[in-house]
Amino acid sequence: MAAARSTRQTSKHRRHGRHARRWSKQVSERSDALDLEPDIFKHTDPKEIAASLKRSAEHSRRRKGTAYQSAMSMLNFYINRAGRNLTKTQRATLQRAKGKLREAFGRTA
């Protein structure tokens, strides 16, 4: 029983180790998602973020779905992976960028 417990603790520790923190960086750099402009998510204007994501999605040859799906997925991915490290202001800006992205692709409800 003690051996099983230590195995679980070891695997849990491994998930939260050095490689686990770099997982999201590798996804955004090497996945077939988008080729993003540098530091795009650090901008303070939601319209600028949305426009950049749209440009990247439309010009990227690495995406699998539609340009809209890829752009929205990358924005959601960044918000989810940044988690607690986002300030309230940054989170609000990124949430507004979602609305601007919908508008940019003509997807307003």
Rank of each mutant, 00 (worst) to 15 (best):
M1L: 10
A2M: 09
A3W: 11
R5A: 15
R5L: 15
R5Q: 13
S6T: 13
S6Q: 12
S6N: 11
T7Y: 07
T7D: 09
R8W: 06
R8E: 06
R8T: 04
R8C: 08
Q9T: 10
S11R: 12
H13E: 08
H13A: 13
R14A: 08
R15P: 01
R15W: 02
H16M: 07
H16R: 14
G17M: 02
G17C: 02
A20I: 05
A20M: 04
A20Y: 07
R21A: 13
R21S: 14
R21V: 09
R22H: 14
W23I: 11
W23H: 15
K25N: 08
K25G: 10
Q26Y: 12
Q26V: 07
V27Q: 05
S28L: 08
E29D: 15
R30H: 14
S31T: 05
D32M: 09
D32T: 05
A33S: 09
A33V: 13
L34T: 03
L34N: 00
D35F: 08
D35H: 06
E37L: 05
E37K: 08
P38L: 00
P38C: 01
F41W: 02
H43E: 10
H43T: 05
T44C: 06
D45T: 04
P46C: 01
P46E: 00
E48L: 10
I49S: 01
I49T: 00
A50I: 06
A51G: 11
A51P: 08
S52L: 05
S52N: 06
S52F: 03
L53W: 00
K54T: 03
K54I: 02
R55S: 09
R55N: 11
R55A: 07
S56N: 12
S56M: 03
E58D: 15
E58P: 08
H59P: 02
S60W: 03
S60G: 06
R61N: 12
R63L: 01
K64A: 06
K64F: 05
G65D: 15
G65Q: 12
T66M: 02
T66G: 04
T66Y: 00
A67W: 02
A67E: 03
Y68Q: 01
Q69V: 04
S70T: 03
S70F: 01
M72A: 06
M72Q: 05
S73Q: 09
M74W: 00
M74A: 06
M74K: 02
L75A: 01
N76Q: 11
N76W: 05
F77K: 02
Y78V: 09
Y78N: 10
Y78G: 06
Y78E: 15
I79G: 01
N80S: 13
N80D: 10
N80L: 13
R81H: 14
R81K: 14
G83L: 00
N85L: 14
L86G: 04
L86A: 06
L86V: 04
T87A: 09
K88D: 14
T89M: 15
Q90D: 14
R91Y: 15
A92D: 15
A92N: 11
T93D: 05
T93A: 11
L94Q: 04
Q95Y: 10
Q95C: 05
A97D: 02
A97P: 00
K98L: 04
K100R: 10
E103S: 12
E103V: 07
E103R: 14
A104D: 04
A104N: 01
F105L: 03
G106I: 05
G106P: 02
T108L: 15
A109V: 08
A109T: 07
A109K: 14
A109Y: 08
A109H: 11
